[in-house]
Design a protein around this nucleic acid. Structure first.
Lengths: 346, 346
DNA sequence: TTGTAAGCGTTATCAG
DNA sequence: CTGATAACGCTTACAA
C-alpha cells in the first residue's frame, strides 16, 4: 500500500503536468519546477526523483504552446526567404535550421512568393516567434513599425536599424573583375538581377571598381538586368551574344544567372571558356556539376544562415546587445572551368 | 462626450483582445466573437462595427499561441525532410508551404540530418502541430506509438497505417526501362541509393519488370547501390565504367545520382549519349541545365507537397476521413539529351 | 521545500 | 445578443 498509484494511465488526451503531479503525489507547479529547467529552483532530491519517474512512466512531454503563453517566449524562429527554389537560400535556411534545432528552437519557414513578406511577418508575430531571419529584399518591403520590437536579423543587408549578417559583396564583385582582367579580358559584361537589393548593388559596384582600377569601363549595352533565375540568365546571355560588340567575358551576379548564361552559350555554339568566360557568384552545388564547371565567387550561405540564427539566440539572452557591428563574411574566388585567357583581338 | 475613448493607445505590450474590448466598450469575449471568425455566432452589427473599428485603430492581431491553447489547434504543420540539399525535397516543401500558407497555416521545417526524425516529431507534437508531413525514410524510423493520434501524411510510402501521397514509382522505373529498350540497349545498369525506402525499391522493381518484359536481365555487377547524392552517382558510374562488360545505358534512381553519373562520364571522356545513355528520375530543375540535358522520369514534387498539405487540411476538418486510397500521381518520361540509340555491338 | 493562487490571451459555455 | 465565468497547460510569485 506504500506505492499506491492514484492515477490510471492517461485517457485519450495528451499527458499534462497535472497528470504527472497526480501520479507523483505532488502539486502541479512542483512538476513544473522539476521539469521546467529553472536552475534557481531547488527541490528535494527525494521528490525530484518521484516526479522524474512519473514523467518517464507517463511519457510526459511539456506543451510548448502553453509554455509559450506563460513565458511569453515560443522557442520558435521565423525564416523569410524570397525564393525557395534558389539553392543559395535553401542553404541559408538549412544553416539556420541546424543551429536553431540545436538550441531547441523550431523554424517556421516562409516563402515570400506565396504571400507578401508583410503578411508573413505579421503571421510570425502572431505566433510569438522569438526572432525572425529576414532576407534583404523582403526586409525592404516591410514598414518599420511592424518590425518594431521584433528580434530581427537581416540577411545580406546592413540596413542600419536591424543587425545583419552579410557577405562581403563588394569584394565579391571586385574579385570577379580582377580575375577576368588578369586573364586579359577587356570587354566584360555584367548580368544582374532586376531587384534592387543592397547585396546585388554592392556586387555590381565592387565589380565596377575592379574594372576601374584597371582603367576599364563598362559599356552600357554590356550591363543587363534580368530576372534572377536560370531563365533570366539564358535570356540575358542571348542578348549579349547578339550584340555587335560581343564581350569576351561576363560576370553574373549569382550562380543561377551564370548557369543560365552558360546554357545559352553552349546552346548557341559559343565555346566556354574559349570564346566567352563566365564568372558566377554564390557557389551553389550545381556550379560543380555543369560542364565545364563554373568559376564563381563563393559566398558561405550555410554559414550566413547559421550565424543569423546564432545572433538571434544571442539577442534573446541579452536583449541589451547593441547592434553588433555587422562583421562581413569573406567571399573567395573559386576558379574552375568557365574562365580562360581572353582570345586574341581580331 | 458620446465618443469617450476610455483606453489610451497601448503601452509597450502587444495589443490584446482586452484592449480592443475596452476601447470598443464591450466585453473581451465579445471581441473574440467578432474577430474569431466563428460563423455560427451572430452579433449585433452595431457592436460588431465598433469592435472592428477599435481593432483596426489599435492594430490588433490575435495571439495565435493563446488561440492554440484554447482551441487545441495550432494552425501549424510540421514538415520533416531527410535532406534539404536535395532540390527534389525542397520542391516538396515549397509545394506544401504554399498551400499551408493559403490555408492560414504555418510550416515548421525539420531537417532530419540535424536531429533524428523521432526528436523532430516529438518536438512537433509538443508544439501542438495539427499535422505532419513525413518523408518515407523518416517515417520508418519512428516507433508507431509516438505517431499515435497524430495527423500524419507520409510522402511516397503507403505504409498501410498512415495516409500517403505517392508517385507511381513502379511505373517510373518501367518507363525508364522501356525507353532504353526501345533505343536498342541490351546491357543496362541500375544505380540506386543505399537507403531501403519503398519508393526506391519500387522504382527498382518497375525497372526490372520493364527489363523482364523484354526478356532482359540485370547482371549483378550492373546493380550498384551508393549514397543518394551527386558524389554517390559519380563514384557509382566510375565503377561501372571500369567494368569489363561495360553497360551502354544506366537508369539512376534519382536525378542527383544521374547528374553525378553524367559528370563521371564526361570527366572520363565517355561520350553521353553516344557511348552511354543515362536516365534519371525526379526532373529537378538542374536536369535542364546540364549539357547534354538529362533525360529523366518526371515526378511531380511540388504537387506531392501540395497534396500532402491539402490532405492534412482535409483531415483536420473531417477527422473521420478513412485512409483515403492513396491515389498515385503519374510519372512521365521526359526525353532530352542523355539518351540515344545503343551503339552497334562490337 | 512545497502548495496555493494568479495570470498568460484566447475560446467556449452558459446565464441574463 | 451580450456578459460573466471557466477552461487550455504552463510558469511564477508568494505563503505556508
Amino acid at each position: 500500500m506504500s506505492k499506491a498509484l492514484p492515477s490510471p494511465p492517461p485517457p485519450g488526451r495528451r499527458v499534462t503536468a497535472t497528470d504527472v503531479a497526480a501520479r507523483a503525489g505532488v502539486s502541479q507547479p512542483t512538476v513544473s519546477l522539476v521539469l521546467g529547467g529553472n536552475p534557481t529552483a531547488r527541490v528535494a532530491s527525494h521528490t525530484r526523483e518521484r516526479v522524474l519517474a512519473a514523467a518517464r512512466e507517463l511519457g510526459y512531454q511539456p506543451n510548448l504552446m502553453a509554455r509559450a503563453l506563460a513565458k511569453n517566449r515560443s522557442y520558435t524562429f521565423g525564416v523569410v526567404i524570397p525564393d525557395l527554389d534558389n539553392p543559395f537560400f535553401m542553404e541559408v535556411v538549412s544553416g539556420a535550421e541546424r543551429v536553431a534545432a540545436e538550441g531547441g528552437y523550431g523554424v517556421l519557414l516562409c516563402d515570400a512568393r506565396a504571400a507578401s513578406a508583410v503578411q508573413h511577418v505579421e503571421a510570425l508575430v502572431s505566433r510569438m516567434v522569438d526572432g525572425i531571419v529576414l532576407d534583404a529584399a523582403s526586409a525592404a518591403e516591410i514598414p518599420p513599425d511592424v518590425l518594431a520590437g521584433v528580434n530581427v536579423v537581416v540577411i545580406d543587408e546592413p540596413d542600419g536599424v536591424h543587425p545583419g549578417i552579410a557577405s562581403d559583396a563588394r569584394d565579391a564583385g571586385r574579385l570577379a573583375a580582377q580575375h577576368l582582367i588578369e586573364l586579359g579580358h577587356r570587354c566584360i559584361a555584367f548580368l544582374g538581377p532586376a531587384t534592387e537589393t543592397h547585396t546585388f548593388r554592392l556586387r555590381e559596384r565592387g565589380f565596377y571598381s575592379g574594372l576601374r582600377e584597371a582603367g576599364l569601363n563598362l559599356a552600357s549595352e554590356h550591363l543587363l538586368r534580368v530576372e534572377a533565375s536560370v531563365g533570366g540568365g539564358r535570356r540575358g546571355m542571348r542578348q549579349l551574344l547578339a550584340l555587335h560588340e560581343r564581350p569576351t567575358a561576363c560576370f553574373c551576379a549569382n550562380d543561377l544567372l551564370a548557369l543560365g548564361a552558360l546554357k545559352a552559350c553552349l546552346t548557341a555554339g559559343v565555346a566556354v571558356p574559349a570564346e566567352m568566360s563566365l564568372v558566377g557568384c554564390d557557389d551553389i552545388e550545381m556550379a560543380r556539376i555543369v560542364t565545364p564547371e563554373l568559376t564563381t565567387v563563393r559566398i558561405p550561405a550555410r554559414e550566413i544562415g547559421a550565424r543569423a540564427a546564432r545572433e538571434l539566440l544571442r539577442r534573446i539572452d541579452e536583449p541589451a546587445a547593441g547592434r553588433k557591428s555587422t562583421r562581413l563574411l569573406p567571399a573567395s574566388l573559386i576558379v574552375r572551368g568557365t574562365t580562360a585567357a581572353a582570345p586574341p583581338r581580331p
